[in-house]
């Protein structure tokens, strides 16, 4: 048997975990020994205590933010993929519309969020639209690139076998595009969450539909810094969770064949 420290899986989990635990411990010790006031920089234990006591409100807020992020993510997948398919139909379409897709990417969401929130009556929908705008571009550009990145030899082979347009699409273009598409998903899932949080900040929605951004804003006003950190921690956790799910999906779909997912020992 190999020593545990040499095992690949053990290292990928244990090494970062050790760093994390050490950092948190150091943080706790530093705060205690320098007597840092809680409203300036709370100890990890304070944050944990807040997380435990405010759990119901924070969980509801997390649910709200996640809901908007996921809605936006799915909308971005559907719209982005459709646009990508449209783009690869003809160069003319891509040339005419791609600059506007770039416009979508380079305009800061904070700048257009107020406009969207004014234009769209329902706040939930407005927030989802904002997050979708942020998450859309990676899906469009990656899927378009993927659908175009087809082995020219295989294109010739399909032509010689008299493959129809649909056969070429299903059997050649879509499988070729999958690695790029999943790359787009990874970026886009994180962006959807960021978009949702930023939009909430701008909208400042409270009450029953309050998300984590609102919790952070409120905590700031009330100088409840541990709560602020707790909300921040939950956002980070959600982002990491989304990313992990995307990595898992990508491994599931590409694991058997694509270089990016095939381990060194395969």
């Amino acid at each position: 048997m190999r020593p545990l420290a040499q095992s690949e899986t053990f290292m990928t989990v244990a090494a970062p975990l050790t760093v994390g635990v050490l950092a948190v411990a150091l943080w706790e010790i530093a705060c205690r020994s320098f007597n840092v006031p809680i409203f300036l920089f709370p100890k990890p234990s304070d944050i944990a205590a807040t997380l435990a006591s405010d759990w119901p409100t924070l969980l509801a807020a997390l649910g709200m933010t996640l809901r908007i992020a996921l809605q936006a993510f799915f909308a971005a997948i559907v719209i982005g993929t459709l646009i990508a398919f449209l783009f690869v139909q003809s160069r003319a379409i891509e040339m005419s519309f791609f600059p506007y897709a770039v416009l979508l990417q380079v305009t800061p969401i904070v700048a257009i969020a107020p406009l969207i929130i004014i234009l769209v009556k329902n706040t939930q929908v407005a927030l989802t639209v904002c997050a979708t705008v942020v998450a859309l571009f990676p899906i469009i550009s990656n899927t378009t690139l993927g659908l175009r990145s087809v082995d020219p030899g295989l294109v010739n082979l399909f032509r010689m076998s008299r493959a129809g347009r649909m056969q070429t699409l299903w059997r050649l273009r879509i499988p070729s595009a999958l690695p790029y598409f999943f790359g787009g998903l990874r970026i886009s899932s994180g962006l959807a969450l960021i978009g949702a949080v930023v939009a909430e900040f701008v909208a400042g929605t409270g009450g029953r539909s309050a998300g984590l951004a609102y919790e952070i804003l409120q905590s700031g006003f009330q100088l409840d810094i541990p709560r602020m950190f707790a909300a921040l921690f939950l956002i980070t956790l959600a982002g990491v969770g989304l990313f992990t799910i995307m990595v898992g999906l990508s491994k599931l779909a590409l694991g058997a064949w694509h270089e990016s997912e095939v381990g060194a020992d395969a």
Partner: peptide
């Protein structure tokens, strides 16, 4: 070049022209 579909197993690669027909 072999021009094989990397996502398909050997049998599926060989079967491709028949599938298309």
């Amino acid at each position: 070049d072999p021009t094989l579909m990397p996502w398909a197993r050997v049998e599926a690669n060989v079967r491709l022209p028949l599938d298309l027909a």
